[in-house]
Lab assay of single mutants.
Amino acid sequence: TFTSIVTTNPDFGGFEFYVEAGQQFDDSAYEEAYGVSVPSAVVEEMNAKAAQLKDGEWLNVSHE
């Protein structure tokens, strides 16, 4: 299960995956970082959410 939350205070020191406002979700980078295949429906969902981000916001993507 993939989830996401919007934050204005990303923790770059941890093992977190963020999408910056104005960027798209990079499923290849996510797969490389976590060894998890990302279904195309999830990629579309995360890109739709990322498109709604305002300046200074980040989308924190995770999975269980």
Rank of each mutant, 00 (worst) to 15 (best):
20 E>Q: 13
23 Q>F: 11
20 E>L: 01
26 D>Y: 05
24 Q>R: 12
54 K>F: 06
23 Q>V: 06
38 V>W: 02
18 Y>M: 04
5 I>W: 08
31 E>F: 15
1 T>I: 15
53 L>G: 03
27 D>V: 15
7 T>P: 00
37 S>W: 10
52 Q>E: 11
60 N>V: 15
29 A>R: 10
9 N>A: 11
16 E>R: 06
18 Y>F: 09
40 S>V: 13
36 V>P: 02
17 F>D: 02
38 V>I: 08
26 D>R: 05
12 F>Q: 07
6 V>L: 06
31 E>D: 04
54 K>A: 11
59 L>N: 01
18 Y>D: 01
40 S>F: 09
42 V>N: 01
26 D>H: 05
47 N>A: 05
8 T>A: 08
34 Y>K: 10
56 G>V: 02
47 N>V: 05
34 Y>V: 04
17 F>T: 01
44 E>W: 00
42 V>S: 03
2 F>W: 14
28 S>M: 13
26 D>Q: 06
9 N>K: 12
48 A>G: 09
35 G>F: 04
63 H>K: 02
43 V>I: 14
45 E>R: 07
7 T>N: 03
33 A>D: 05
64 E>T: 15
43 V>R: 11
46 M>G: 02
11 D>C: 14
32 E>T: 10
56 G>A: 02
63 H>A: 04
54 K>G: 08
23 Q>N: 10
64 E>V: 15
24 Q>Y: 12
14 G>V: 06
31 E>H: 10
48 A>I: 12
26 D>K: 05
25 F>Q: 01
25 F>H: 02
15 F>E: 13
35 G>E: 04
30 Y>V: 03
9 N>Y: 09
19 V>A: 00
48 A>S: 10
19 V>D: 02
10 P>R: 04
1 T>V: 14
5 I>F: 13
16 E>W: 12
51 A>F: 00
59 L>Y: 00
17 F>S: 02
13 G>C: 15
41 A>K: 12
61 V>M: 01
25 F>E: 00
62 S>M: 13
48 A>Y: 08
7 T>I: 10
43 V>Y: 06
4 S>C: 12
60 N>M: 15
8 T>F: 07
25 F>V: 01
52 Q>Y: 07
38 V>C: 04
48 A>Q: 12
17 F>I: 04
22 G>E: 03
52 Q>M: 14
59 L>R: 00
3 T>G: 08
36 V>I: 14
28 S>I: 13
41 A>S: 13
17 F>G: 02
59 L>I: 03
47 N>K: 07
13 G>R: 09
51 A>E: 08
25 F>W: 04
17 F>N: 02
3 T>K: 08
7 T>H: 03
54 K>T: 08
18 Y>N: 03
26 D>L: 07
13 G>Y: 11
32 E>K: 14
7 T>A: 04
5 I>Y: 14
23 Q>M: 12
45 E>W: 06
51 A>C: 06
43 V>C: 06
27 D>W: 15
35 G>M: 06
2 F>D: 07
60 N>E: 11
28 S>L: 14
12 F>L: 10
11 D>L: 10
15 F>C: 15
54 K>C: 06
41 A>L: 10
13 G>E: 13
51 A>Y: 00
30 Y>G: 03
35 G>Q: 06
10 P>I: 04
62 S>P: 03
44 E>S: 10
53 L>M: 06
3 T>N: 11
33 A>K: 15
53 L>V: 02
62 S>V: 12
17 F>H: 04
44 E>K: 12
4 S>M: 06
43 V>L: 09
25 F>Y: 02
25 F>A: 04
35 G>P: 01
53 L>N: 02
58 W>C: 04
8 T>G: 06
63 H>W: 11
42 V>D: 04
54 K>M: 10
54 K>I: 09
2 F>I: 11
34 Y>R: 08
45 E>C: 09
3 T>V: 14
40 S>R: 15
56 G>H: 05
10 P>C: 08
3 T>R: 08
56 G>F: 06
30 Y>L: 01
16 E>V: 06
12 F>G: 06
63 H>V: 06
6 V>Q: 02
44 E>V: 11
37 S>K: 15
30 Y>N: 01
49 K>M: 10
50 A>K: 01
28 S>H: 15
27 D>G: 15
11 D>N: 13
56 G>M: 04
60 N>Y: 14
53 L>P: 02
1 T>M: 14
45 E>H: 08
39 P>H: 01
39 P>N: 04
23 Q>H: 14
31 E>R: 13
10 P>M: 04
13 G>F: 12
47 N>W: 01
56 G>P: 03
14 G>H: 08
5 I>E: 14
1 T>C: 15
30 Y>Q: 01
23 Q>A: 13
63 H>I: 06
13 G>K: 10
58 W>I: 01
60 N>D: 04
4 S>W: 13
8 T>Q: 10
17 F>R: 01
45 E>D: 08
57 E>L: 00
47 N>Y: 01
38 V>P: 06
33 A>V: 11
6 V>K: 00
44 E>T: 12
48 A>P: 01
44 E>F: 03
40 S>Q: 14
64 E>K: 14
58 W>R: 03
63 H>S: 05
12 F>V: 07
58 W>N: 02
38 V>G: 00
23 Q>S: 11
24 Q>P: 11
1 T>G: 15
43 V>W: 06
38 V>T: 03
45 E>G: 05
36 V>S: 04
62 S>R: 15
16 E>N: 14
63 H>G: 04
1 T>R: 15
44 E>C: 09
7 T>L: 07
37 S>M: 12
